[in-house]
């Protein structure tokens, strides 16, 4: 059985279901690289171009972890799956950059798909997927079935991850929990936080230094930006007097703006990746909006390979303390000193 390697980085966190299903249905073994480890980070930083963002660098490590175990690498040149908005240009160049940086890679399967710029629609998608399928089987029925199942798997994935408006409001009223149940902390109010960032940061405990677990342990219930209902994101984006055309950044800024407006969370934690262009735009916009309307506190954390874990922990702890104390009536008693 042929083995197709899929690096567990960047868009894998969006399209894992589609990709793995597709290759399995074609009768190949889809090999996903292990979760990010210190070794993968080390290999990434050593081999990736200096100017790339931290998440793109990590992609290199995942490719290196796979290269000797697989017959093919699947690195699509992905432009966008939206008719107007685009992904990151780095996604398109990734396969070629990797091929030139690391000479002895196995054959790279790199279909180009771009709905926004090249006008690729359903038929183009089908044609491109079919061509990939032909590498592994001559049986057209098998390929068509693989495509249908893969698309279906992706739709199901969206269904499980995206929540509808009703569920969101339920969460805002603290009637439901969407992620890891927060630990109970005696005598402390449970906090609600919006955790905002790229899917490949939110879901990779290594790059975000295990923030999901640490929030859970601090007794914080959270919602992530990738769960947010799309219509609410678009509604917020319409308020900007320019068109933010980075599809995944819209998700991030939209989520921040929604919660700044609704004021239904205690705070917002914005995870940013160092030297990510779109992140630096959204980060600056978010910081300015927060200055204008500072009711919901915003904590922006920038991650890269040099990020010191101790400093991040201190910031997160201090932020949680700040949110807890601001509501805590006890602080009032403490700050007014009684002289006897």
């Amino acid at each position: 059985m042929k083995k197709v390697g899929i690096p567990r980085a960047l868009l894998y966190y969006k399209f894992s279901e589609m990709w793995t299903t597709f290759f399995k249905e074609l009768g190949t073994e889809a090999v996903v690289s292990p979760k990010t480890t210190k070794q993968i980070k080390f290999d990434s930083v050593k081999n990736a171009p200096d100017e790339d963002c931290y998440s793109t660098k990590l992609y290199f490590g995942h490719v290196l972890a796979l290269k000797d175990q697989v017959d093919y690498l699947f690195i699509p040149r992905f432009g966008s799956d939206h008719h107007t908005y685009v992904g990151c240009p780095k996604f398109i160049g990734l396969a070629e950059v990797l091929r030139s940086q690391i000479p002895d890679l196995p054959e790279i399967i790199m279909p180009h798909y771009n709905k926004a710029k090249s006008g690729h629609r359903k038929i183009a998608f089908f044609r491109k997927a079919y061509k990939v399928g032909l590498k592994f089987t001559k049986n057209p029925i098998k390929i068509i079935r693989a495509i249908i199942k893969a698309v279906k798997a992706q739709k199901n994935h969206y269904k499980t991850i995206l929540i509808d408006e009703e569920t969101l409001h339920k969460w805002e009223r603290s009637e439901t929990i969407l992620n890891e149940p927060p630990r109970y902390v005696e005598n402390e109010r449970q906090l609600k936080i919006a955790l905002v960032g790229h899917s490949y940061v939110l879901n990779d405990p290594y790059s975000a230094l295990g923030i999901r677990t640490s929030l859970q342990e601090h007794g914080v219930d959270f919602i992530t930006s990738e769960q947010m209902p799309r219509n609410l994101i678009d509604k917020q984006m319409d308020k900007l007097d320019y068109d933010l055309y980075f599809l995944y950044e819209r998700e991030i800024l939209g989520a921040i703006m929604h919660f700044m407006e609704s004021k239904t969370v205690d705070g917002i934690i914005h995870l940013m990746i160092f030297s990510c262009g779109p992140d630096s735009i959204a980060g600056e916009v978010a910081a300015r909006l927060s200055k204008r309307d500072p009711i919901v506190p915003l904590l922006q954390l920038v991650f890269d390979e040099l990020t010191a874990e101790a400093g991040m922990k201190t910031r997160i702890e201090a932020f949680i303390d700040m949110l807890r104390r601001s509501e805590d009536e006890q602080t009032l008693l403490l700050t007014t000193k009684v002289h006897i």
Partner: peptide
Amino acid sequence: NGIVVDFAMNTV
């Protein structure tokens, strides 16, 4: 008003 509303630390 006696409540921490913002903070920052030196980074690297």
